[in-house]
Every structure is written in structure tokens, then in C-alpha cells.
Design a protein around this nucleic acid. Structure first.
Lengths: 352, 352
DNA sequence: CTGAAAGCGCTAACAG
DNA sequence: CTGTTAGCGCTTTCAG
């Protein structure tokens, strides 16, 4: 066993000729201590290389300033972007980010059970489902949970999501306005609330407008599955002339297949639309029309919720953030996009 | 202030009619306790929803089982892949991953100074430089440092890197074998050891083979900068017919520019080669020839180092992991690749 | 095998 | 403003 010997507040106290609690005060922002002794202590501390042990501090005030973050699958750039923003936002809020891997599926990995043993200020689940046993464990451990890009019927957990209803409806309207005849939908993971909401709203809007029910394939929010799904669609005799993929990752897979395997002119012979508006969507290689989920705002809301829940664990709420349909080359252009922009934003960005 | 009340070992002890230390033993793997009382304690603990407080435990045994990970920029998919693998690998090793954002530059964010106050078992820096002050702080805090995809002259820090020398030489040989006339290099971040090593080896090999010195532009491992660099290169009257980009992210930016802005047939009119072999490189949209850095092996080595350093902080070592040149469509094909494969692996993978 | 007791390093009243 | 005194929740001798 490695025996690391650390400099403690006692050592500093002895060196500075003060009590150990004086050392503590010297390192506590608003504590009452004379500038003189404080300076002396800080000098001694610096010489000895002293750093207050945050574990001990957390043990006392009962909170660790640590937020647990469970991430399922970083293959989706939307979550990468989110991680990036979240780590900075938490940092700015003085919170540490304890990361743990989770299955994208409904249940989280066993390790989360252990992670809960830290006195987490909150637990954020990025597109990871909350199993009922995990919810129960968090309740017991008194760790507030924030679901990101996911919702649950459980009333006691907070969530931050984009407006999947409006997003899917706007995309449906966009495709109808483009006079597409055979529309298809490539679905995300079956159990996910994002897919459930997008799919329901998409199908409902089309039905409501008197359009035929779209074709449907499963893509599981996964490149390989979406690739296979696209192949199935494009091999059909009644090949669709428009595909709405439940996220950008799958849409990019679909573009790859349509263009490189079937030689289709994406944007003319077939329209492909995604969801999330990941940075890659703007690349000329894809120029993907996509409904944006503003990660920056969603992260800001997440941190806001965490700060509230830290002080009042029962103040759970659900936040819905607006998005925008980013019109790009992968979908057939329409004369007047704003004609169907009754409920949401639509933008025609210039390529980067 | 929110006052969360937690179940402690005392509560369980009272409920089970044993001493508090018995409760501790019940939760300590190899402790001497009768199966009978152990079972009784576990039952009581379960009923009360008791979880041992890991902060208190860490306070005693002096180690937190937490590894700090500093990440500069997740725009590069290589680091995303690494993060994914690393979080799982650490999890399997029973270690927690405390993430903090860092500048890609030489110095890490201020927050790292605070993160060091936890009793970290180790600190991993993903392609983030180690400033001398940070190194000094880690030494004082007795936190062993592992540099990932980076080296430093500092003898007291460990590192895990790919073989940049061989990689760059292999790429140079590949381009020469393809009879390219005007070769260019788009460099990564100036201060980074990866760029320094790749650039030096690339230039040295070309010179050694009697080839003219390549053109050179700065790409800073950044999409926007690499895009601009490529434009500068392709606008020249003596446009290069081959570009080696110091990583895949920049190579993909270069492909985008060459193909969509200059209408070039990448792989015939111009060869573009990257470094890292990120998953995207295999997509048909890019089909990027690239020298692989096997993230899986590099992560495994990193975790191995951490486990060693946990017990012996002075056991620093530098690990170099082999890569493979993945030949794809973005570079002019060569009759017999193995002809110049004197020092490394070369593969011609099938597209996914 | 078990309980009592002594801390891990720090903060937070409490007197002075 | 400062030192003293209790602990935070747990592990770990040390007796029994």
C-alpha cells in the first residue's frame, strides 16, 4: 500500500503559530479573521504546499459540490456538444462533474448504485432512461435527478427537453409543402420519450393533413441500424421520396446510403431531414436540414434546475426549450417556407 | 439551506441491535464478521435505505478512488472515443471519473487547482498540456499525472502516445509512392507534442528521400483554421496534389473544401491523408486514408498506468502504442502498398 | 467474532 | 478576532 502523507491544517497551524481553526478560517471566504494572521497563515500554507481536503469539508456540510452525469452513448454529437457545454457550465457554477457510463437503454449500469454513495448534489441523465429502481434509490439517497432530453411520467423528477411535438410537426409540414409523395420515418430507440413524442406528432400531423401514413423503419438512434433501415427503404419498389430520421446521426447515415450506395441526388431525388442540428449537419458534405435542439440553452436550464434542486429537492419541474428548423440542401426547397411556419422558427442558414 | 438527513451507520446499528463498527464490517469485503449478524445488518440497512458514505471512507484511507480527467476539446472525435472507452475502463477498475474542462492550450483552467484538493488517485490529461506550475502542484498534492496523446520533457510524468514518428514516416512514404509532386502539410496546434513529432518526422523523411520541402499551413487542430488553411493551399498557382493533415478533423475539413469549394476529385486529383483514424474516416462520405491511433489500447495502457501509480507514485513511464495506416479512397492508390511497409502496419479496410 | 474508543481532516458553534 | 470543543460518518486498532 502506498502511504501518501499529506499536509494538514494542523501542520500549517503549527508553522504559523496559530490554532488549527484559524487555518480553516483563512481558507473560508467570509470568515472573521484579521488580514494579518490570514496572510501569515497563507504564507505558511503555501510553503508547506497545503490544500484543504475537500472530502473532509464535504463530510461536514453534507454536500459534495459534485454532480453525477450519466451518459449513454457519445456516438451522437449532440451529446458530445452537451457534455462540453455542461462541463463548463457546472465548472462556472463551482460544481464538479462525476461521469459514469450508462447503458442507453432503460437501466443504468451497476456502477451508478455506487456513485450514489457520494453525497451528490444532483444526478443528470443524458438521454438515459430512469429505471424505477434507480429513481427509488435516488429518492432514498436524496439525490435530485434531472433528465436531459428525456422525460418520464414520474412526477418527482425534473427534465429538460426540446419541443419534440412542434419540431416533428414542423418537419412534417415542411415535407408536405415540398409535395413529397411517399414519406418515411426512421425511428429512434423504442423506449425513448424523444422518439415516442417525435413519432407520434409526426404521424398525427400527416394524418391530420390527409397524407397517407408514412413508411416506418427502426433505426435505434444508431448508425448501423439506420444504415440498414435506409437500405430497406430504398430497395422497395415504392421507394420513398422523403425520409425523416429521428436524429441527425441516423440522417447522416441515411445520406451516406442514399448518395453512395444508391447514387441518389439528396435534396432533389430524395429529401432527408434530421433532428438535433448537430454541428456536422452544417458541413457541406451533408448540408442536412434539421430541427435544432439548442444545447446551450438546454444546458443552461439544466444547471439552473440543479441549483434550485440543491436547496429544495422537491422543486422539480419540466422545462421545454424551443428549437428552429434549419433548412439546408438535403431537403427539397420550398418557395415560401414561412407559409407553413405557423408555430415555430424556420431558418435558412448560410453554410459555414 | 437545504438540510438533507441521511441514514448513518449508527441508525443501522441501532436498528439491528449491534455496534456501529459491526455495520462497518458488514460492508467491508474481507472483514471478520459472522454471516449471521452480517445478514441481519444488511437487512436492516436495506430497510432504512442505508448507503455507506464514500466521502467518509475516503477521508480515512486517504484515497478517493477518483481519477481526474482534463479534456481540452471534444470537437475531435478521437477524444470522444477515448472518453467513452476511458469512462468504461475506469468504471471496470472501480474508479470514478471526475471531469473538468481544460484549455487545449498549455495551461489548464483554474478549476483544476481546486479539483486537486480532492484526494485524486490520478490525473489524466487528454491532449492537454501540462504547465510547469500545474506539474508542481500535482507533485505537491501527490497526484500522479498521466498524459494521454501528449508527452513532456518532464521526467516525473507518465504518458501514453501513439507512434507519431513511424506514423508520419509511413504517410510520407505512402505519398511518395503515389508519385505526388507537391506535398503540403497542415499542422496542428503549435505547442503540442503530437504536432511537433509528426511534423518533424514527416519533413525529415521527405528530405531524406530527396523530395522537396512540403508546403506548410497552420490548422491548429481546428475545423475553421484547417478550412482556411486548405483554401490558402488550393488557391496557389502551384496547388499541392497531396495534403497530410496532422489529424482527421482537419483532414475532413480539407476534403470538404477540396470537394465542395474547388470541385476536386479527392483521391484522384488530390490526395488527402489524416491522422487518428476516427470512426468517421471510414464513412463513405470521406473514405479518409489515415494513420490509426488505437484508442482502445491507449486507454487500456492509461488505466494500467493509473493502477500502478496509485500504489507507487514514482513508477512513471512512457508508453508508445503502435498504429496502422488505413488506406482508403482519399489518397491515390498504390500498386503495392507493402513495398514501403518496412516499419509498420498497413491495411486496406473494406468500407463499413 | 464483537464492542469500545480513537481518530481521518475539516467546519462550526461557543466562549473569551 | 481567536482558541477550544464537538463532531461530520466511517475505519481500525485494541481488548475481550
Amino acid at each position: 500500500m502506498n502511504d501518501r502523507i499529506f499536509v494538514t491544517a494542523h501542520d500549517v497551524a503549527r508553522a504559523a503559530g496559530v490554532s488549527q481553526s484559524a487555518v480553516s478560517r483563512a481558507f473560508t471566504p467570509g470568515a472573521s479573521i484579521s488580514p494579518d494572521t490570514r496572510a501569515r497563515i497563507l504564507t505558511a500554507a503555501d510553503q508547506l504546499g497545503y490544500r484543504p481536503n475537500l472530502l473532509a469539508r464535504s463530510l461536514i456540510n453534507g454536500r459534495s459540490n459534485i454532480v453525477g452525469v450519466g451518459v449513454g452513448n457519445l456516438a451522437n454529437p449532440f451529446f458530445v456538444e452537451t457534455m462540453q457545454l455542461l462541463s463548463r457550465a457546472l465548472d462556472d457554477a463551482g460544481l464538479r462533474l462525476l461521469l459514469f457510463p450508462a447503458d442507453s437503454g432503460a437501466t443504468a449500469e451497476p456502477s451508478i448504485h455506487e456513485i450514489l454513495h457520494y453525497r451528490l448534489d444532483a444526478l443528470v441523465l443524458l438521454s438515459v432512461g430512469l429505471s424505477s429502481t434507480l429513481a427509488e434509490e435516488c429518492r432514498r439517497a436524496q439525490v435530485p435527478v434531472v433528465l436531459y432530453n428525456r422525460t418520464t411520467l414520474d412526477d418527482a423528477t425534473s427534465s429538460v427537453i426540446g419541443d419534440n411535438q412542434i419540431g416533428a410537426r414542423t418537419i412534417a409540414a415542411h415535407l408536405l409543402a415540398g409535395r413529397h409523395q411517399r414519406i418515411a420515418y426512421i425511428a429512434g430507440t423504442a423506449g425513448s420519450s424523444t422518439n415516442a413524442q417525435r413519432e407520434a406528432a409526426f404521424f398525427a400531423y400527416l394524418a391530420q393533413q390527409g397524407a397517407p401514413a408514412p413508411l416506418r423503419e427502426d433505426g435505434h438512434y444508431d448508425i448501423a441500424a439506420a444504415t440498414a433501415a435506409t437500405r430497406r427503404l430504398l430497395t422497395r419498389p415504392d421507394r420513398p421520396d422523403a425520409i425523416f430520421c429521428a436524429n441527425d446521426l441516423m440522417a447522416i447515415a441515411a445520406i451516406n446510403v442514399a448518395r453512395h450506395e444508391y447514387g441518389l441526388d439528396v435534396g432533389r431525388e430524395i429529401s432527408i431531414v434530421g433532428y438535433d442540428d448537430v454541428p456536422m449537419a452544417a458541413w457541406p458534405a451533408f448540408s442536412l436540414t434539421s430541427y435544432s435542439q439548442p444545447a446551450e440553452q438546454m444546458v443552461a436550464q439544466t444547471v439552473r434546475l440543479i441549483r434550485i434542486l440543491r436547496d429544495d429537492p422537491d422543486a422539480h419541474q419540466d422545462v421545454i426549450v424551443d428549437g428552429t428548423l434549419m433548412l439546408r440542401g438535403s431537403s427539397r426547397s420550398v418557395a415560401n417556407p414561412s407559409a407553413y411556419a405557423t408555430t415555430t422558427n424556420i431558418a435558412t442558414p448560410r453554410p459555414d
